[in-house]
Amino acid sequence: MILLVYSLIILLVQTVVLPRWAFLGAAPDLILVSVIILSILPAKQKKLYYAAAMGFFQDILLNGAYLNTITKVSVSIIIDTFKDNFIGNEYRSSMLLVLAFTPLVLIAEAAALFFVFDKQIGLFYLIKTIILTTAYNALLAAVLFPVLQKISHE
């Protein structure tokens, strides 16, 4: 239940508040950050369904492809597969994974849009977005980690 409330808040902040704070066209992806942190934490919740539902609702606001559903589910399953290899601090692992997966997800999305949907995305804009969004996501991961840690124990 608490995860449901958290998810709704995150979804609304992502779609209503954060776009108004976008810097040079880049805004953080709170949902990706939440999926990464929840996947690394030993939570009881069904993380895969959480990733799918949040990605799906993110896609509802877009047009064409359901890319967020695919990327969020992929990130969740990849982390779940390899998380036993991450020994030690969960906070540090979450931060590292946010730093690693944000550019990967953005590149995968941009590549899919470019090659499959013929959507023109400038290289300079792509690089700028990757740098800014990764920095934004890392900052927010530090804030969201303790919240999600609490939720995962519920």
């Binding site: 779609t15 209503v16 776009p19 877009l62 941009a110 849009l113």
Partner: peptide, 12 residues
Amino acid sequence: AKSGSPWFSIVE
């Protein structure tokens, strides 16, 4: 609301 994705410029 706005799309929130850097690859789309869509508003609701």
